[in-house]
Protein backbone atom coordinates (compact mmCIF):
# COMPACT_ATOMS: atom_id res chain seq x y z
CA UNK A 1 0.00 0.00 0.00
CA UNK A 2 1.21 3.49 -0.87
CA UNK A 3 2.25 5.35 2.28
CA UNK A 4 3.54 8.55 0.70
CA UNK A 5 1.20 11.45 -0.12
CA UNK A 6 0.25 12.04 -3.73
CA UNK A 7 1.30 15.35 -5.30
CA UNK A 8 -1.20 18.16 -4.69
CA UNK A 9 -2.38 18.20 -8.28
CA UNK A 10 -2.91 14.43 -8.50
CA UNK A 11 -6.65 14.72 -7.86
CA UNK A 12 -9.14 17.12 -9.39
CA UNK A 13 -12.46 18.22 -7.92
CA UNK A 14 -14.33 15.35 -9.56
CA UNK A 15 -11.90 12.79 -8.13
CA UNK A 16 -12.44 14.28 -4.69
CA UNK A 17 -16.21 14.22 -5.08
CA UNK A 18 -15.98 10.55 -6.10
CA UNK A 19 -13.76 9.73 -3.10
CA UNK A 20 -16.28 11.31 -0.76
CA UNK A 21 -19.50 10.04 -2.27
CA UNK A 22 -18.49 6.44 -2.96
CA UNK A 23 -17.44 5.93 0.66
CA UNK A 24 -21.13 6.05 1.47
CA UNK A 25 -22.25 3.41 -0.92
CA UNK A 26 -22.36 2.02 -4.42
CA UNK A 27 -25.51 0.66 -6.08
CA UNK A 28 -26.38 -2.97 -6.66
CA UNK A 29 -27.69 -2.65 -10.21
CA UNK A 30 -27.18 -4.04 -13.65
CA UNK A 31 -25.10 -1.01 -14.71
CA UNK A 32 -24.01 0.42 -11.34
CA UNK A 33 -21.27 2.67 -12.74
CA UNK A 34 -23.77 4.32 -15.06
CA UNK A 35 -26.05 4.99 -12.09
CA UNK A 36 -23.31 6.20 -9.78
CA UNK A 37 -21.65 8.25 -12.52
CA UNK A 38 -24.80 10.25 -13.15
CA UNK A 39 -24.35 11.85 -9.73
CA UNK A 40 -21.07 13.42 -10.90
CA UNK A 41 -22.19 14.07 -14.47
CA UNK A 42 -19.91 11.29 -15.64
CA UNK A 43 -20.61 8.57 -18.16
CA UNK A 44 -20.30 4.95 -17.11
CA UNK A 45 -17.01 4.67 -18.94
CA UNK A 46 -15.63 7.88 -17.46
CA UNK A 47 -16.39 6.77 -13.89
CA UNK A 48 -14.78 3.37 -14.49
CA UNK A 49 -11.69 5.07 -15.92
CA UNK A 50 -11.50 7.47 -12.99
CA UNK A 51 -11.78 4.65 -10.44
CA UNK A 52 -9.16 2.60 -12.28
CA UNK A 53 -6.87 5.61 -12.23
CA UNK A 54 -7.51 6.32 -8.52
CA UNK A 55 -6.70 2.72 -7.77
CA UNK A 56 -3.59 2.81 -9.93
CA UNK A 57 -2.14 5.88 -8.23
CA UNK A 58 -2.95 4.41 -4.81
CA UNK A 59 -5.66 6.89 -3.76
CA UNK A 60 -8.01 3.98 -3.06
CA UNK A 61 -7.12 0.92 -1.05
CA UNK A 62 -10.30 -1.02 -1.73
CA UNK A 63 -13.44 -0.84 -3.80
CA UNK A 64 -16.23 -3.33 -3.22
CA UNK A 65 -18.32 -4.85 -0.45
CA UNK A 66 -17.17 -4.46 3.15
CA UNK A 67 -18.21 -7.49 5.14
CA UNK A 68 -19.09 -7.62 8.77
CA UNK A 69 -16.97 -10.49 9.96
CA UNK A 70 -19.08 -10.90 13.08
CA UNK A 71 -22.20 -11.33 10.94
CA UNK A 72 -20.35 -13.96 8.93
CA UNK A 73 -19.74 -15.91 12.10
CA UNK A 74 -16.40 -14.54 13.19
CA UNK A 75 -15.22 -12.76 16.30
CA UNK A 76 -12.76 -9.89 16.62
CA UNK A 77 -11.02 -8.19 19.47
CA UNK A 78 -8.60 -5.29 19.76
CA UNK A 79 -5.91 -6.27 22.27
CA UNK A 80 -3.04 -4.40 23.88
CA UNK A 81 0.02 -5.35 25.87
CA UNK A 82 2.62 -3.51 27.92
CA UNK A 83 5.81 -5.04 26.60
CA UNK A 84 9.13 -4.28 28.31
CA UNK A 85 11.45 -2.57 25.80
CA UNK A 86 14.12 -5.26 26.16
CA UNK A 87 11.64 -8.01 25.33
CA UNK A 88 9.85 -6.25 22.49
CA UNK A 89 11.19 -8.26 19.55
CA UNK A 90 10.83 -11.57 21.38
CA UNK A 91 7.20 -10.84 22.33
CA UNK A 92 6.41 -9.51 18.84
CA UNK A 93 7.61 -12.80 17.35
CA UNK A 94 5.49 -14.83 19.79
CA UNK A 95 2.39 -12.73 19.10
CA UNK A 96 2.79 -12.57 15.32
CA UNK A 97 3.26 -16.33 15.05
CA UNK A 98 -0.45 -16.75 15.75
CA UNK A 99 -2.38 -16.76 12.47
CA UNK A 100 -5.31 -15.21 14.39
CA UNK A 101 -3.32 -11.98 14.81
CA UNK A 102 -4.63 -9.95 11.88
CA UNK A 103 -2.52 -6.86 12.38
CA UNK A 104 -0.22 -5.54 14.98
CA UNK A 105 1.05 -2.01 15.61
CA UNK A 106 3.67 -0.55 17.88
CA UNK A 107 2.31 2.58 19.59
CA UNK A 108 4.01 5.20 21.74
CA UNK A 109 2.30 4.49 25.04
CA UNK A 110 2.76 2.39 28.14
CA UNK A 111 0.56 -0.11 26.29
CA UNK A 112 2.95 -0.30 23.35
CA UNK A 113 1.71 -3.27 21.35
CA UNK A 114 -1.78 -3.22 19.82
CA UNK A 115 -3.16 -6.03 17.70
CA UNK A 116 -6.44 -7.37 16.42
CA UNK A 117 -7.38 -11.00 17.04
CA UNK A 118 -9.72 -12.68 14.59
CA UNK A 119 -11.25 -16.04 15.44
CA UNK A 120 -14.28 -18.06 14.49
CA UNK A 121 -15.95 -17.65 17.87
CA UNK A 122 -15.74 -15.39 20.93
CA UNK A 123 -14.39 -18.40 22.85
CA UNK A 124 -11.62 -18.61 20.25
CA UNK A 125 -10.60 -15.04 21.09
CA UNK A 126 -10.41 -15.86 24.80
CA UNK A 127 -8.38 -18.97 24.20
CA UNK A 128 -5.82 -17.28 21.91
CA UNK A 129 -5.48 -14.26 24.20
CA UNK A 130 -4.98 -16.62 27.17
CA UNK A 131 -2.41 -18.57 25.20
CA UNK A 132 -0.46 -15.39 24.37
CA UNK A 133 -0.50 -14.50 28.08
CA UNK A 134 0.95 -17.90 28.95
CA UNK A 135 3.60 -17.74 26.25
CA UNK A 136 4.75 -14.22 27.12
CA UNK A 137 3.95 -13.97 30.83
CA UNK A 138 2.31 -10.61 30.06
CA UNK A 139 -1.29 -9.47 30.39
CA UNK A 140 -3.30 -9.21 27.19
CA UNK A 141 -5.79 -6.36 27.68
CA UNK A 142 -8.94 -6.98 25.65
CA UNK A 143 -10.99 -4.22 24.10
CA UNK A 144 -13.82 -5.79 22.12
CA UNK A 145 -15.92 -3.38 20.09
CA UNK A 146 -19.19 -2.63 21.87
CA UNK A 147 -20.42 -0.13 19.32
CA UNK A 148 -19.01 1.36 16.14
CA UNK A 149 -19.82 4.71 14.54
CA UNK A 150 -18.81 5.01 10.93
CA UNK A 151 -19.36 7.97 8.71
CA UNK A 152 -16.25 7.95 6.62
CA UNK A 153 -13.42 10.21 5.98
CA UNK A 154 -13.84 13.37 3.92
CA UNK A 155 -11.38 14.96 1.55
CA UNK A 156 -11.65 18.67 0.90
CA UNK A 157 -13.42 19.30 -2.38
Amino acid sequence: MRRAPLPDDALDATDRAILNALQEGFPIAERPFAEAGAEFGLSEEALIDRLAHLREIGAITRFGPFFDAVAMGGAFCLCAMEVPRARFDEVMTLVNEHPEVAHNYERDHRLNMWFVLAAETPEGITSIADQIEQETGLTVFRFPKLKEFFVGFRVAV
Partner: peptide
Protein backbone atom coordinates in the same frame (compact mmCIF):
# COMPACT_ATOMS: atom_id res chain seq x y z
CA UNK B 1 -27.73 -9.13 -6.92
CA UNK B 2 -30.60 -10.40 -4.79
CA UNK B 3 -28.17 -12.19 -2.49
CA UNK B 4 -25.93 -9.15 -2.15
CA UNK B 5 -28.95 -6.94 -1.45
CA UNK B 6 -30.11 -9.42 1.20
CA UNK B 7 -26.66 -9.53 2.80
CA UNK B 8 -26.62 -5.72 2.85
CA UNK B 9 -30.06 -5.75 4.46
CA UNK B 10 -28.93 -8.25 7.11
CA UNK B 11 -25.72 -6.37 7.80
CA UNK B 12 -23.43 -9.13 6.56
CA UNK B 13 -22.32 -6.56 3.98
CA UNK B 14 -21.90 -3.28 5.82
CA UNK B 15 -21.68 -1.25 2.65
CA UNK B 16 -20.44 -1.47 -0.91
CA UNK B 17 -18.01 1.38 -1.17
CA UNK B 18 -14.50 2.56 -1.71
CA UNK B 19 -11.89 2.94 0.98
CA UNK B 20 -9.59 5.93 0.51
CA UNK B 21 -5.90 5.60 1.25
CA UNK B 22 -5.35 8.14 4.01
CA UNK B 23 -1.61 8.28 3.44
CA UNK B 24 -1.92 8.94 -0.29
CA UNK B 25 -4.41 11.72 0.44
CA UNK B 26 -1.85 13.49 2.59
CA UNK B 27 -3.13 12.23 5.92
Amino acid sequence: RARMAAMLERGVIRRIALAPNHYALGM
